[in-house]
């Protein structure tokens, strides 16, 4: 864990000085999809990781891939140890594409393979990507993954691919889409029924799989939605906030008396 002094030495002020002046969330009539992740509810069970892996046709991460640090999971659970044995505590933080309002990945792509769509999503167009990996390097959250190999599945898992999601080839960058195929499907259905999309109707695979409802998804433009409500919680924070990326994902701080005390002691 970084101490208070370490944090002060990071060049966050310089980054903040070069912030784009554009409004990261321009007013739109449409949706602005967002997520709230409650660190207090996350048990680190990895159900979201498994759900994402099978929903989005991600190849299995074999042991070698992990050793090579080339393992690919669009959502990963970061684990932090707090305290010393025997009073050590594990803290979990699911990290996925933050769908930033000021996305550093979008400005560096030379071919517009990644862009912000009208629904506030950071979209990756796979067949436009030429694999420069600039975006993956620009991403402060390390949630963009380059395909170093063609994806492979041991039989019979190659027969359970999701037809709504492309199988990405070697040589391109991919990342969490907020399950855009589910969003599009729900929007189509709502359009067909002649009604707006209801709050909680769209559920990405990770949100659907979470057994403790630590992950909540919805429309941030709808002030009555559950995500809007939760994102204004006192416990709310965003990852690497000083970078000014304006993420669409809000985290809720862990509620833990000992944790709070510890913070006060160290003067954070």
């Amino acid at each position: 864990m970084a101490s208070a002094t370490d944090t002060a030495e990071l060049p966050v002020v310089a980054a903040a000085a070069t912030l784009p002046t554009d409004d990261p969330h321009p007013e739109t009539d449409g949706h602005r999809w967002g997520m709230v992740i409650d660190a207090d509810k996350c048990t680190g069970c990895q159900a979201c990781v498994v759900a994402c892996q099978s929903e989005n046709n991600l190849a299995l991460n074999e042991e070698n891939r992990v050793i090579e640090r080339r393992a690919k999971t669009w959502i990963r659970i970061e684990r932090y140890w707090e305290g010393e044995w025997p009073n050590a505590k594990a803290r979990f933080l699911p990290v996925l594409c933050q769908h930033c309002g000021n996305a550093p990945c979008e400005t560096v792509c030379p071919v517009w393979a990644t862009y912000h769509n009208p629904d506030g999503l950071n979209v990756q167009v796979y067949n436009r990507c030429i694999g420069t990996r600039f975006c993956a390097n620009a991403c402060p959250y390390s949630v963009r993954y380059f395909n170093f190999w063609e994806p492979e599945w041991p039989s019979p898992m190659d027969r359970q691919l999701n037809p709504d999601v492309t199988v990405r080839t070697k040589g391109i960058v991919e990342k969490c889409t907020f399950c855009i195929h589910r969003i599009n499907r729900t929007k189509r259905q709502a359009d067909r029924d002649g009604r707006p999309v209801a709050d909680g109707e769209v559920e990405p695979a990770c949100v659907q799989a979470c057994p403790t409802t630590a992950l909540v998804f919805g429309d941030l433009n709808d002030s009555d939605s559950k995500v809007s409500e939760l994102s204004h919680s006192k416990r709310a924070f965003t990852l690497l906030e000083p970078l000014g990326t304006a993420p669409a994902i809000t985290y809720l701080k862990k509620v833990d008396p000992s944790h709070v005390d510890e913070h006060e002691e160290h003067g954070h």
Binding site: N117, P118, V123, V125, D164, V165, T166, I180
Partner: peptide, 8 residues
């Protein structure tokens, strides 16, 4: 004409 409407 948004890419994500057709591309998956």
């Amino acid at each position: 004409l948004d890419c994500a409407v057709c591309h998956k």
